[in-house]
Design a protein around this nucleic acid. Structure first.
Lengths: 192, 192
DNA sequence: GCGGCAGCAGACGGAACTGTCTGTAGAATT
DNA sequence: AATTCTACAGACAGTTCCGTCTGCTGCCGC
C-alpha cells in the first residue's frame, strides 16, 4: 500500500476529495460519475475498482462527512470549557462556524437522504450517524446532571438538525445564534 | 372552464394529485415525467400544455405543500385555544400529526431544495414559504407579549424545521414530543 | 352542422448517466 | 529482465429521462 502516488495523493484520495466537494455542492444525484472522473483526473476503471458502485462512493462520502462534523462538534464542546453544561451549549459554535463557511449548504446527511430511496443504505448510514451523535450528547447531558438526559439530548439535536436543515437555503448566522440561545435556555431549564 | 371532466376531476387536477403523491414519496428528481403521465392516466401533450417544464410542475407541487402545511399549522394553533402563548405551543401538534401520518417523509420543501440547484426557483419558493410561516409566528409571538418576537419566532421555526428534517428518516413521534416540550420551555422563558 | 378545444396515444430525437471493456504506460517486485 | 500491480485513456452498450411532434377522438358553443 505504500508508494505509487500520483501527483497529489493516491488516486483513491483524489477521488474522495473530489467527490466530497462535488457531492456536497450539488448532491450526489446531481453529479455524474464522469464529472468526478474528469475533475479528479482519474481513469474510469480506477474509480470503479475502488468503488464498484456509485453508492459505495456516496457512502464513503458520508463517512467523511461524519468524521468532519462529529469532530467539529466535539472540538467546539471541548473549547467551551470543562463543565458539561457549558459544553452542551458550546457545541453550537460548530454550527455557527459551519454557517459562516463558504459554500455551506446544510446537512450533507439530510440532503443526501432526501434524494435516496427510503429503505436503502444511505438512510441506514444517516440514522447511524444521528444516533451516534445523540448518544454522545446524551452522555454529556448525563454528566451535566440532567434529570432526563435522553430528552435534553433529543431537544438539543433537534435544534442542531433544524439549524443544519435551514442551511440548505442560506447560511444565515442568525440561525446559529438563535439555536445557541435556545440551547442555553433548554439546558438551564433542564438543570434547574 | 366548466364541464369536460374526465373520470376523476380535470386532467390538471389529476396531474397535480399524482405529482404530489409521487414527488413527496421519492423526491421530484426521483420521479420521471413518464411515470407521472402513466399514473395519472394523462397524455404527455396534456401535461406539457399545463406545465411547459418539469420545473413548473415542481413549483405547483410546492405551492400545494405550502397550502397544506401552513393550513395545518394554523389549524393546530387555532385548536390550542385563544391565548397566543398557547397557540405558539399548540402549532407543534401539526408536527405530531404529520409524524403519525402514513408515508411521512419530512419537509417537502427542504427535501426538494436539497436536490435543486442553489440559485434556482425552487430555492426562492422555499425561502418564500419559510419567510411567510416565520412572519406568522412572529406576529403570534408579538401578540403573546414576547420581548423579542423575532427571536422567539426564529427559535420556534428552528424547532419545526428540525422536527421536519428528521422526518426524512423516520416519523418518530418522540421527536414531535421533544419539539413541543422545547417550545413550551422557550415560550415560558420568553414571556417571563 | 361545424370549427375549435381539450384530451388521449405513442413515436421520436437528443442528452445524460451508469457500468464494462480494451489497450497502454510506468513503477515495483522478484 | 520479466512479471505484476496500479493507473490512465477512451470507446461502448444499455438505460433513463426530458421535451416535441404527429395523429386521432369526443364535446362544446356558434
Amino acid at each position: 500500500m505504500p508508494a505509487h502516488r500520483t501527483p497529489a495523493g493516491s488516486a483513491r484520495d483524489r477521488i474522495l476529495e473530489t467527490a466530497f466537494r462535488l457531492f456536497y455542492a450539488h448532491g450526489p444525484r446531481g453529479v455524474g460519475v464522469d464529472t468526478v472522473i474528469a475533475e479528479s483526473g482519474v481513469a474510469k476503471a480506477t474509480l470503479y475498482k475502488h468503488f464498484p458502485r456509485k453508492d459505495d462512493l456516496v457512502l464513503a462520502y458520508l463517512d467523511r462527512v461524519d468524521q468532519a462534523w462529529f469532530g467539529a462538534l466535539r472540538a467546539a464542546a471541548r473549547d467551551a470549557g470543562d463543565e458539561p453544561r457549558d459544553q452542551l451549549v458550546g457545541m453550537f459554535d460548530a454550527l455557527a462556524s459551519a454557517c459562516r463557511r463558504d459554500g455551506y449548504h446544510g446537512c450533507a446527511f439530510i440532503n443526501t437522504a432526501a434524494e435516496s430511496p427510503a429503505g436503502g443504505p444511505v438512510h441506514a448510514r444517516t440514522v447511524e450517524h444521528k444516533t451516534v451523535v445523540r448518544a454522545w450528547v446524551t452522555e454529556l447531558a448525563r454528566q451535566a446532571g440532567a434529570a432526563d438526559p435522553e430528552l435534553l439530548a433529543r431537544q438539543l439535536t433537534l435544534l442542531l438538525d433544524g439549524g443544519l436543515a435551514g442551511g440548505v437555503l442560506d447560511g444565515d448566522p442568525v440561525i446559529a445564534d438563535a439555536a445557541r440561545r435556545s440551547a442555553r435556555t433548554l439546558v438551564d431549564a433542564a438543570l434547574r
